[in-house]
């Protein structure tokens, strides 16, 4: 199968959905002739014109507000916020408007919009451009939150998100944009709410999201040399979470390590751990171990940034301990 990058996969998804449904249009900062800060929308304005690929002023609240209005009135907007950190400026539109409209109008209105935005660190762009804020959106009922880790999942999930009648927060990752992976040329979808076993194992389940999926897979390779068989799970969607997949895997391995790049307190790892304890308690032979960012802003200093973001070594160390019965 051909291999393309995560960015190319996203671009293909946007293009295919725009060809398929004329209600689909894009809006965001510098997504037109410039092609977007991470080149996701490159070339689309040439193909679809400025009506459907709309450059906006630098106002995140206006971008999301316009998308919400367009969605309610029958369009299927895909808004891009250049950095996930900047969604903070649009929080009222996202959480109080987009998420609630369907409920507040008794189901008579819906808000079929997608908000694409990159999270994550590792590129030394400091506190305001490196956060992983997925959990904020998971906490708001009415939003779906998608977080693909591979080009295949990114394309399939973006297409599903555009076709979904609910507002979807589509979390991308700066470290994953250049990652290449197999993507079929024929059309396919990845359903929202379905996780995937990225590697089969039996000694311990490592549940990881986004960039951490890749780190967990590398850690699993290293651990395999020691004879430790790690099962790596990628939830792919953070809300709704594929609880069944997680619980069934933990029932098999009896041990769980949860890895996410966001902060530990009230983060993604907290929610997944709670699900495991609630629904697979009797199958646990050790406490659930969490690996996440310490509760601190991402530092600008590269060594410090490397220190706070979970590493392969931390995953390897945690898995060794849990398998050896040291936690």
């Amino acid at each position: 199968m051909r291999e393309i990058t995560y960015v190319e996969a996203l671009r293909e998804a946007l293009r295919e959905e725009m060809l398929r449904d004329e209600r689909v249009f894009l809006l965001g900062e510098d997504i037109g002739p410039y092609g977007g800060a991470f080149t996701v929308t490159k070339g689309l304005i040439e193909e679809f014109g400025p009506e459907r690929v709309r450059d906006t002023p630098i106002s995140e609240s206006a971008i999301v507000g316009a998308a919400v209005g367009a969605a309610i009135t029958g369009m299927r907007p895909v808004a891009e916020i250049m950095f996930g950190d900047l969604t903070a400026l649009a929080m009222d539109q996202i959480c109080n408007q987009a998420a609630k409209i369907h409920y507040m109008f008794g189901g008579q209105a819906s808000c079929p919009m997608v908000l694409r935005t990159p999270f994550g660190g590792g590129v030394n762009i400091a506190e305001h451009h490196s956060q992983s804020l997925e959990a904020w959106f998971v906490h708001v009922p009415g939003l779906k939150v998608v977080a693909p880790s591979t080009p295949y999942d990114a394309k399939g999930l973006l297409k599903s998100s555009i076709r979904d009648d609910n507002p979807v927060i589509f979390c991308e990752h700066k470290q994953l944009y250049r990652v290449k992976g197999p993507v079929p040329e024929e059309e396919y979808l990845v359903p929202i709410g379905s996780g995937e076993v990225k590697r089969v194992g039996e000694d311990v389940t490592v549940i990881a999201t986004m960039w951490m999926v890749h780190k967990a897979l590398k850690a699993a390779d290293m651990l395999a040399e020691e004879g430790i068989k790690v099962e790596v799970l990628d939830p792919r969607t953070l809300n709704p979470l594929d609880k069944k997949l997680i619980v069934e895997s933990v029932m098999k391995t009896n041990r769980a390590v949860v890895v996410s790049e966001d902060v530990k307190t009230c983060g993604i790892t907290a929610e997944i751990s709670a699900v495991i304890v609630e629904e697979a308690f009797d199958y646990l032979d050790a406490p659930v171990v969490r690996i996440a960012n310490p509760d601190a802003p991402i530092p600008f200093s590269p060594p410090l940034e490397n220190y706070v973001i979970p590493s392969e070594e931390r995953i390897v160390d945690a898995v060794r301990k849990i398998v050896r019965g040291e936690v």
Binding site: N254, D282, Y283, L284, A286
Partner: peptide, 17 residues
């Protein structure tokens, strides 16, 4: 010993089950 309180057994949920 005058009083012997029953010790809490430390066991994993799976071990208990």
């Amino acid at each position: 010993k005058p009083e012997s309180t029953k010790p809490m057994v430390r066991a994993s949920p799976l071990a208990r089950k």
